[in-house]
Amino acid sequence: MSLEASRVTFGYGGRKKQMILQDISLSLSPGERLGLKAPSGRGKTTLCRLLAGYEKPLSGQVLLDGVPLYKWRGACPVQMIWQHPETAVDPLLRLGDTLREAGPIDPKILERLHIEKAWMDRYPSELSGGELQRFCLARALQPTTEYLLCDEITAMLDLVTQAQIWKFLLQTAEKRGLGLLIVSHSDALLERVCTRVEELPEGM
């Protein structure tokens, strides 16, 4: 069972019709940690959105186990973690509700992510980015999850939090055989956490 993008082309409609991604192919197997690097503006986030099934490619396909991903209904085995956790949680919901949205979370995950009980009753505006990102991770780690797409998930956090989050992710990925796609601008980080690093080819 693998996550595969084959000859994917994507661009937003508009005057110039410029393609952001052209003919991109990529595959990710369980247990693999693929690092992706590219200069800014080359469509790394867009690729993540395609792989997560948020967008449908203009041509080419994103297949999970041979099935087009955007057709998936219900809990998706591919989950994306966003760079800015404060946009990925509903500002009007208490975090406990956000966390349990898709079902109960294994208390062990909460413990290992250092999520404190008191945070559950708070609103997102009362927690720091690092604390919110822990919630996003816990929420994404459903029992059905097989792939995580990490788009610069620690770029806005301090180094200690970054190390904590990656340590947790690496352990969890190892234990559950998750496939990770890791986008980061930091070569040192990619080198540290990935099993394989690829450069995204230029779109145009």
Partner: peptide
Amino acid sequence: QAPYMLAAEKLGV
């Protein structure tokens, strides 16, 4: 289009 809505959708809510 808000990320938290997209996330909820993909979590099968």
